[in-house]
């Protein structure tokens, strides 16, 4: 029983791995562009003239860039499922196969996690090349992974629920892009007006930014933030499974 479930997860993951492997170099290269620009513009260019308590601005934004990049990559790694469902109809193969339905969700999440972690590794390498200081601990990796999983889950739900390509793109523009800039990634949320801050502080990416920053610089991380991330991930997972099971209604 358990073994078959693992086999099913592996099958779903295998498919994504086959596709990724074929375009690995292209994938990695294209993922370097945006973070490299962030590092150059904000870290190296702008950052040298901005004083930040206890370090450089570069040290401040690297965790933020990791947070926003892993969000974007994991979300966009899973959204091709949308075309597979609506346009190519290739999800029918999974729906009609005798597999454990959750295996589809888990396999896709794992594949998105892999992509996001690969691109995070590139950013870390670039950041070190720029002279940033960042300590990568197991807990740091755990938080980063939680962030990837959670946004992959959001991507999955969007892919299951949204029916047009247009609207899929809008999720990027109206939700991910603002979050990329506002959620404690480039500046502390204390600088925001209090009403806005209330909303921003409830968003998962904010918690990831602060956790990664604290863990990366070796200061105290908030346990509450970690709990928030875990709760988000679990709640969204339940929704993922439900939306996938609803496909055959």
């Amino acid at each position: 029983m358990m073994e078959q479930r693992l086999t099913d997860i592996a099958t779903v993951f295998w498919r994504d791995w086959v596709v990724l492997k074929r375009r690995l170099a292209k994938f990695l290269l294209s993922r370097m562009v945006a973070p490299l620009l962030y590092l150059v513009a904000f870290g190296w260019g702008l950052g040298r003239s901005i004083p930040v308590e206890g370090g450089t601005y570069l040290d401040f934004i690297v965790p933020g860039i990791l947070a926003l990049n892993s969000m974007n990559i994991s979300f966009n790694s899973i959204t091709p499922v949308h075309a597979e469902r609506v346009y190519h109809k290739s999800l029918e193969e999974y729906v009609s196969a005798p597999i454990w339905p959750d295996a589809f969700v888990l396999g896709k999440l794992l594949a998105a996690l892999l992509r996001a972690l690969l691109s995070s590794a590139i950013i870390c390498a670039l950041a070190f090349a720029f002279g940033a200081r960042l300590s990568i601990t197991p807990l740091f990796l755990l938080v980063l992974s939680m962030n990837c999983i959670l946004f992959a889950e959001i991507g999955f739900i969007a892919a299951m629920k949204i029916n047009t390509f247009e609207e899929m793109g809008q999720v990027n523009t109206y939700i991910l892009l603002p979050m990329s800039f506002l959620c404690g990634t480039f500046f502390h949320t204390a600088a925001l007006p209090s009403a806005l801050r209330l909303i921003i502080d409830a968003l998962p990416l904010t918690h990831t930014s602060y956790l990664l920053r604290a863990l990366g610089t070796g200061t105290d991380a908030s346990l509450a933030s970690l709990v928030v991330l875990v709760l988000y991930a679990v709640f969204l997972y339940v929704l993922c499974v439900r939306t996938f099971r609803r496909l055959s209604e």
Partner: peptide, 9 residues
């Protein structure tokens, strides 16, 4: 009735 292959494979 319709083709439903995985187009990336």
């Amino acid at each position: 009735q319709h083709i439903n292959f995985d187009q990336d494979l």
